[in-house]
Computed example of a mutant assay.
Amino acid sequence: MLLSIVAAAANSSATATYIKYASQLSGRDKACRFTQYFARLLAYLVTRRISLQGGKPQASTLDWLATLTKIQGTMSTTRKILRSGKFIDFFRLFVRSLYESGGDEVERLLNMGHKGGMFVFMLADTVGILHSALGLVRLRDPARVTRVAMRGWWCALACQLLAAAYQLRALMIREADVARVRRHLEKDADPMADRECVVEERLVAQRKRKAVRQVVAAALDISIPTAGLGLLGLNEGFVALAGSVTSLMGMQDILYSD
């Protein structure tokens, strides 16, 4: 009986899904990212509660806050170590984007900006972790390296947001064109052409949902470096919530990917 339960658990769809997710480095990174930002959100809520009470917080509350802060820092450091050296990959992608030809010129330039920004972000991030966590590099001004990383990340996300918005606009135009063609075909009573329009409408709708999702994710993510650079006085709770939501979105993408 016990062995049958164990066998059923080992062969269940939940176990298969977990193995598929945990076997990917990006999956583990998203899990750590969610833990990091969710702990940051909880720390913000605890701090806000203390400030609203106006009195001396209890020792248990301070211990809880210290634990959340430690989790946040540990997850951040873990993620930085896992992605150290990844700037080489983005450097290769950036160089490749320089030699791409054909296609939409705006999308090509935005893709180039995204890859270049991620290269700067990952390079500065790797240098920072070599200094702070490993002690292999000594930096005179670590805060400056952090600002460089934030600027690179902000530029990459800005290009990603603009590219997603540009694709969404093109899909909306395409959607309007297909609807106009279909109205014309309905007058001519052409069933074959009408079926082709249905297929095209479904394809455009699918791509449109994906583009909307990319716009939302990039818009939320860009709030993190924006707050880090002090460009806008964004609420700490909003930034932590944005990071938590986009982490869940990334986890969902990995789980439902082919």
Rank of each mutant, 00 (worst) to 15 (best):
E200I: 02
L229T: 01
V6S: 09
F38R: 02
Y37I: 05
W153D: 13
S244K: 02
G228H: 05
L162V: 00
D104Q: 01
I88F: 08
A66I: 06
G55I: 11
W153G: 09
L229G: 08
M1I: 14
W154F: 04
N111E: 10
K86I: 09
G102Q: 01
T67A: 15
W154K: 14
P225Q: 03
D141W: 09
G103C: 05
A205M: 03
G113Y: 06
L136R: 10
L41H: 14
A218T: 03
V137Q: 13
T17H: 05
L171Q: 15
F87K: 11
Q160D: 02
F34C: 10
M122Y: 12
N11E: 04
G116A: 06
G54T: 09
T67E: 15
S244V: 10
S51P: 03
V95A: 12
A158L: 02
T77R: 15
A22L: 10
H184S: 11
L134E: 10
Q214F: 06
K208C: 07
L68C: 12
V95R: 08
V181Q: 08
I222L: 11
M150G: 09
G117D: 08
P142F: 08
A240P: 09
A218Q: 01
R48T: 07
L162C: 00
G27C: 03
S132R: 06
G27M: 04
G237R: 02
Y44N: 13
M150P: 09
R183I: 12
L157Q: 09
A176F: 14
E175N: 00
K210Q: 07
W153L: 14
T35I: 08
G228E: 11
P191N: 02
R92S: 13
G230W: 05
D125C: 06
V199M: 13
G230I: 04
Y166T: 00
R209K: 15
L231A: 07
Y21E: 01
T15G: 02
T146W: 13
L139W: 15
Q72E: 13
A66Y: 08
S4F: 11
L98E: 02
T246S: 01
A7R: 08
S244G: 09
A7V: 15
D258R: 08
Q160T: 06
I71T: 02
L123C: 08
A143C: 04
L93F: 15
